[in-house]
Nucleic acid binder design. Structure first.
Lengths: 127, 127
DNA sequence: CTCATATTCAACCAATCAGTTGAGTATCCG
DNA sequence: CGGATACTCAACTGATTGGTTGAATATGAG
């Protein structure tokens, strides 16, 4: 994988199955078997999804007898929020600045000159 | 398109090229040509990326002579933040609750029997 | 040691994705 | 009108993804 972590995290959460897993891991750590419960999907498929989350750094795993419980690593979520919020804020600022400019426009300016009307057919020309 | 918007938005931002576009659209609206500038990539490819962002609801487009300037729709970002923050907060709470429990443990309990050997590797690097 | 449980590995498949090139459409300008 | 500019559509391609099944590994219980 020659792809940066931010990309991996976004990609990981682009799948509803994986988002569901994250939602449940936020409540409690869980094994592959437990996670697989609600899904109509093979155990191996769930294992693969878990692997994607792990590669993205969203979950860590430990060993507990045969089980390998997954644990949500919430810090990575902060990385996403940081990215998103940065640009949301930037855009927001820009918009409010635009609003301010518009609000300051003096009344004697007509910012929307009506374009000259190209005219119609020559049928039934009126004198 | 049988895929929910949240999935589309996450997927849209899973690509570095598209994240870069979003970053620049946060600064100013831009046309396909302008956006394509820095990329070593055909105009059509950029147009396609823009389409993905549009389908995800992240940008809207208008018409201005031949140009079709793209405009960042920041509200959608809020949807992501809402999702992420919900689970981050949930996990966070859970951890602090756990901390509280541990802090309350009477002294005569040894809550952390030291494992004979912390699993040394646990996971070999796969080629 | 042998068996059961929990999980992963490996090979395969269909669908989607990110990119390409080439042709087509929309809009303005002279 | 005819061109130039800005963009999109269509068809193709190789890589990745989300799923499958069957075999393999890891660990604890008897």
């Amino acid at each position: 994988m020659a792809v940066d972590q931010l990309s991996r995290v976004f990609a990981a959460l682009a799948d509803p199955t994986r988002r569901d897993m994250v939602a449940r891991l936020a409540v409690a750590d869980a094994t592959v078997n437990e996670l697989a419960g609600p899904f109509d999907m093979s155990l191996q498929a769930v294992s693969k999804h878990l692997r994607v989350l792990e590669d993205a750094g969203l979950v860590s795993r430990s060993r507990e007898a045969q089980r390998r419980p997954a644990h949500l690593e919430a810090e990575v979520l902060d990385m996403m929020t940081a990215w998103i919020e940065r640009y949301r804020r930037q855009a927001e600022e820009r918009f409010s600045r635009l609003d301010a400019v518009l609000a300051e426009l003096p009344d004697d300016i007509d910012p929307l000159p009506i374009p000259p009307r190209p005219i119609a057919d020559g049928k039934g020309a009126r004198p």
